[in-house]
Amino acid sequence: MSDTVHNRIALLRAEHGVSRRDLAEALEVHYQTVGYLERGEYSPSLHLALRIAEFFEVPVELVFSIEPFPRISDSRSA
């Protein structure tokens, strides 16, 4: 089993028109932390994961998963 935590932070940021820097300021973290999270180079604490979900007003399971999220292009070909 992999320790990777998959996320949709970049997708949510794009949908909401939020820059990495804007999200970082709202979460009170360094903007590079957002980049590390998006690339899967860093797994968030539970507290940070919940704050990210709260920022986007979605359930935490919509943002983070221990299984890879299906690609958007995969759902279009069905």
Rank of each mutant, 00 (worst) to 15 (best):
S65Q: 05
N7C: 10
R13F: 05
H47M: 07
A14K: 05
A24M: 08
F69T: 05
E41A: 11
E57Y: 03
A53I: 02
G40N: 08
E25H: 10
G17Y: 03
V63R: 00
M1N: 04
L50M: 12
N7F: 07
A49Q: 06
R39K: 14
E38H: 11
A24L: 10
A14I: 06
S19D: 07
T33N: 13
Y42P: 00
S19W: 06
A49V: 02
I66Q: 11
I72S: 12
V60Q: 11
Y36P: 00
H6R: 03
L27R: 08
D74N: 08
P44G: 12
R21Y: 10
L50P: 01
E25Q: 14
R71M: 08
V29M: 07
L11D: 11
A26Y: 00
R71K: 15
S2K: 09
R39T: 12
A49H: 03
S45R: 13
E41P: 00
E38T: 10
A26L: 01
M1Y: 03
L48F: 03
V29I: 15
H30E: 13
L50S: 12
P68C: 09
S77W: 06
H6V: 04
S73P: 00
E61P: 00
L48Q: 06
A78F: 08
L37A: 08
H30G: 09
L48N: 04
S45E: 08
D74S: 15
V29P: 02
L46S: 13
D74C: 03
M1W: 02
A10P: 02
A78M: 08
V29F: 05
E57L: 07
E41M: 12
E67P: 00
E61V: 06
A53W: 01
S45Q: 11
L62P: 01
E28R: 13
N7W: 06
S45H: 04
R71V: 03
E67W: 07
R20K: 12
R51M: 06
I72P: 02
P68T: 09
T33H: 14
H16S: 13
P59D: 15
S65R: 05
L62W: 08
H30M: 05
S73N: 07
D22N: 09
G35M: 05
E61H: 13
R76E: 13
S2M: 08
F64L: 04
V18L: 07
L23Q: 07
E38W: 09
E41L: 14
S2W: 01
E41H: 14
E28A: 15
V60A: 15
S19F: 04
D22P: 00
P70D: 09
H16N: 15
V63W: 01
S73K: 13
S77E: 14
E25R: 15
L46H: 10
S19A: 10
Y31G: 00
L23P: 02
M1V: 01
R13H: 06
V63D: 02
F69W: 03
I66P: 00
G40L: 10
R8H: 04
T33I: 10
Y31S: 11
A78P: 01
V34I: 15
P68W: 07
L46R: 13
I52N: 02
R51T: 03
D22G: 08
S43L: 04
S2V: 05
E67S: 09
S19T: 15
F69D: 01
A14H: 10
N7P: 04
R39I: 00
P59S: 12
F69Y: 05
H47K: 12
Y31D: 09
F55W: 09
I66K: 09
I72W: 10
L12H: 11
R20F: 05
E38L: 11
S75I: 13
V58P: 00
V34E: 05
